[in-house]
Simulated assay, not measured.
Amino acid sequence: MSNSYTSTLMRLLAAFAILLCLSLSAQAASDKIHYTPDQIRDLGFEIAHELRCPMSVNQNLFDSGAPIASELKGQIFLMLDQGESKAEIIDFLVQRYGEKIRYQPSFSAATALLWFGPLLLLFGIIAFAVIWIREQRKHQDIKANTYE
């Protein structure tokens, strides 16, 4: 009797696990965002302004007239129609074209110099200026002491 009881219990647990998985997958499929046409237009333009065109130098997707920019704008609007979020769309395009498609790259070890380079350069210039001014004052003090 205990063997059939454990067998029945295992079947119930398996059925529960299957139902739980099915409900989670159905919920994930229904988690798509439903945008209005105005929201799609505004969000699509916003994304196109934030991403760099792979073919044009210093132009975003919105301003670029390159064929690839038109294709990518179409991809953005298609994904918005399918209910994808802004983050999902940007992640998809970054996976496809690399981090260079962003105007503001995400912080990582590879982009740390981009984020901190200007600050390091500024501190270096300030340090150089302070040292140079101190040296100039030392030389002036030495000259003033030798003439007295």
Rank of each mutant, 00 (worst) to 15 (best):
9 L>A: 11
12 L>N: 06
14 A>G: 10
22 L>P: 01
23 S>F: 02
23 S>K: 02
24 L>G: 04
29 A>K: 03
32 K>Y: 15
38 D>K: 06
39 Q>V: 06
43 L>Q: 14
46 E>L: 10
47 I>T: 08
48 A>C: 09
50 E>A: 11
63 D>T: 13
63 D>L: 14
64 S>I: 00
70 S>G: 14
72 L>A: 10
74 G>K: 04
74 G>Q: 08
78 L>Q: 09
78 L>R: 13
85 S>E: 01
86 K>V: 05
89 I>D: 10
89 I>P: 02
91 D>R: 02
93 L>G: 05
94 V>C: 05
95 Q>E: 12
102 R>K: 09
104 Q>H: 09
107 F>G: 00
109 A>G: 10
111 T>I: 02
113 L>F: 12
114 L>Q: 05
115 W>I: 06
116 F>H: 03
117 G>Y: 06
117 G>M: 03
120 L>A: 14
122 L>Q: 14
122 L>G: 11
123 F>R: 15
123 F>T: 15
128 F>P: 10
130 V>P: 02
132 W>V: 01
133 I>R: 10
135 E>Q: 06
136 Q>E: 14
136 Q>W: 12
138 K>V: 14
138 K>Y: 08
139 H>Y: 02
141 D>P: 01
141 D>E: 07
144 A>K: 05
145 N>H: 08
145 N>P: 00
146 T>D: 11
147 Y>A: 07
148 E>G: 15
148 E>Q: 09
